[in-house]
Amino acid sequence: MSEKEVKNLEAIFEARIARDEKIEPKDWMPEKYRKTHIRQISQHAHSEIIGMLPEGNWITRAPSLRRKAALLAKVQDEAGHGLYLYSACETLGVSRDELYEQLHTGKAKYSSIFNYPTITWADMGAIGWLVDGAAIINQVPLCNTSYGPYARAMVRVCKEESFHQRQGYEIMLTLCNGTPEQKEMAQDALNRWWWPSLMMLGPTDAESVHTEQSMKWKLKRKTNDELRQQFIDQTVPQADILGITVPDPDLKWNEETGHYDFGEIDWDEFWQVVKGHGPCNKERMNARVGAWERGTWVRDAAMAYAEKQEKKKVSKAS
């Protein structure tokens, strides 16, 4: 294809997206579109399955049978969401095993929030409330993104996630209505998860390299800073209902803007965690790689069995 033809196809392609048409797997697409989507969708998928680990850490210790069942169901949903997203990614011509390979070798990134440890039961509340809260803000606009398989996966994810944040907030509420010790546990969890949750919405617009192109392809509808502001505005009143304090001395309602002003985010910490030096980066990766390697003989056996059965069927038929 000549350069001119490609330019022409690109123009038609961009126009389709601008008209809100969906792009489907076999449609022609610019290489950059494909690559960007593989990167974003797989990052999203990796985040879901790495995200199973910090919460999975508390399944065996959940304090009641009701909580245990809810937490199990939630972590299971995350596995499901990872699966939907890997499937969406595979429509772009990359296999799940290749994507795992990228994750396991550290080539692919996942949400840095999951590199923080879950050290008390209240962390299950804080993650559901804050982390899922921030995730929803990120994800809802993606239900209308331009790539069909991604948009459809996100519709399913968002529908299923609606219970996750409520589950977390209910845990927080129970703690805050409990003994002083329980309330302290809730406050401590908020203290530890607040800033990482704000960072989760991505670097500031000035630092963010992908925003403009992503906006055009509807991978993003709002900038990181807008999303962050939205998250803060909706979360602070929820903390008030719980009766616990957001750990930011500069947090203040601004009559003029109609938004909360907030303090400086420690971006050095953010980049440190992104670059692999957070409190649990190593542990998360070891857990994933370990599970995958321990599972090799199982996956191989299943394939070998399937092939034997197939041969038996063929020899019976002939």
């Binding site: 699966l83 499937s87 799940r96 459809r152 299943a302 399937a306």
Partner: peptide, 22 residues
């Protein structure tokens, strides 16, 4: 949607667990 499985029986079971749990 889609999923991975070694054989048809497993695909059916996985589909049941992944796509019909609600």
């Amino acid at each position: 949607g889609s999923l991975h499985a070694a054989d048809a029986e497993m695909a059916l079971e996985n589909a049941r667990d992944v796509y019909t749990r609600r």
